[in-house]
Design a protein around this nucleic acid. Structure first.
Lengths: 232, 232
DNA sequence: TAGATTGTTAATCGATTAACAATC
DNA sequence: TAGATTGTTAATCGATTAACAATC
């Protein structure tokens, strides 16, 4: 079967989150596409299409069974089938992820962490011992690790990824500012902070120009400065 | 002028990053849409359209002046006009962001951090003193702060956002797992980790089903369990 | 001149929204 | 029955890709 598009998956997760929150607040058995659409600013037709795409059927004049919607989404994403991941790079961001408690409902267990800093190896972070990089490959191979989380500096990211992929992970969650190359069939999900940062800069810059005019930039001068190598 | 679409902005940033890296490695004066497209897996026509949209003109048989491309993108995003932001919530993630050195090339200066934990107030993180929440509103008002970075727990996020917006920020960078309401004209950029997590879960679940079959889920049973309130 | 590349128009593709018959 | 809601087909919209004349 054709995999669902990313936009569809993202809407499904929004439905799931919303219904989870709603269920926590009050008991509800059914919801209509119109109600759900209004709450999430999504066209009701789109809601019905999305639900139809994952095999959900509603009831005329009643709507959809909330419990069945949630079950179908959990089943689709496999949230009830936990899988194991390892994290490489126990810096600030890595530590923040290790300390974050919200992964379990999505099926992810982070079972080990690795770092190349000898001072960190052997210490505990959020209940996990930091292992040496030397141990990474064997660990991934021997523990059926499906996911590698890359929170290293840019310079180390591709090398770490190569080790993870060679040892058998099926997906990479990339928090480093690098475009990673992996063998076909391995999923890379990027969390590049620069895209959000750029969107914000664009918005604020437009406001600034509205307020002050474009400023002293003189676009007619010959271009002297090389491209500054941007960090991300 | 109509603001550029998000997909266009994201491609522009990819061009910018790539040209920055390329310039750092070797001296290049021009690049063709075909070269850039091949490197980033983007259709050359799309590259030309994007460049045309920000006023860049190329030269037949030569391509585009790399320096001018970078200058136009810097100008568009205002990377040469630094702006100030404050961070609220100095937990692991907040600390990771404060310690990250890569914001300056995008124009962002984080100038203050706030937390409601009295044990943290007064301590230093990455060279910044953590302030009390009581000081937030006056600080934002008095220092022309344009951006609020929200790295609080979910429960505090909307309240913090309300304070930030009321005090005059023009954009919110939201790392909390909450959909924030803001007054019109204020940009909210969400970095919801659950979308990435869900995409990975979906991919791994499909692989699992290919390998093992769908497992013991019996979708024909009546739905008993309520929607588990998902965390994000 | 010949040929590579731009800039732009047309065609395609996919996603969203509107319309509406079927259903409970 | 009347009316609200689903499920689906048609229409619209926007984004991507193809085609090609203009240009250097």
């Amino acid at each position: 079967m054709e995999p669902l598009r990313r936009v569809v998956l993202e809407r499904l997760i929004r439905y799931y989150r919303y219904l989870g929150e709603l269920s926590a607040r009050k008991e509800i058995r059914t919801i209509t596409s119109a109600q759900l659409g209004a709450a999430l600013d999504i066209d009701p037709t789109q809601v019905r299409k999305d639900f139809g795409a994952i095999g959900l059927v509603g009831i005329s004049r009643v709507g959809y069974d909330v419990c069945e919607v949630c079950r179908a989404i959990r089943l689709l994403f496999g949230f009830d089938h936990p899988y194991d991941g390892v994290l490489v790079g126990a810096g600030h961001l890595g530590t923040a992820l290790l300390a974050y408690g919200g992964f379990a409902p999505f099926g992810l267990r982070i079972v080990a962490a690795f770092d190349n800093d000898p001072a960190k190896v052997g210490t505990q972070v959020a209940g996990l011992t930091i292992h040496s990089m030397d141990a990474l490959r064997a660990y991934v191979r021997d523990h059926n690790i499906r996911l590698g989380i890359v929170t290293t500096p840019a310079s180390a990211a591709q090398g770490v990824t190569d080790q993870l992929v060679a040892s058998g992970v099926k997906a990479i969650w990339n928090f480093s500012p690098v475009r990673l190359n992996v063998s076909p069939g391995v999923l890379v999900r990027n969390e590049h902070i620069s895209l959000g940062l750029a969107q914000i800069a664009y918005h604020l810059n437009r406001l600034r120009i509205q307020e002050q005019g474009p400023g002293p930039d003189s676009p007619k001068e010959p271009c002297r400065e090389p491209c500054a190598p941007p960090r991300r």
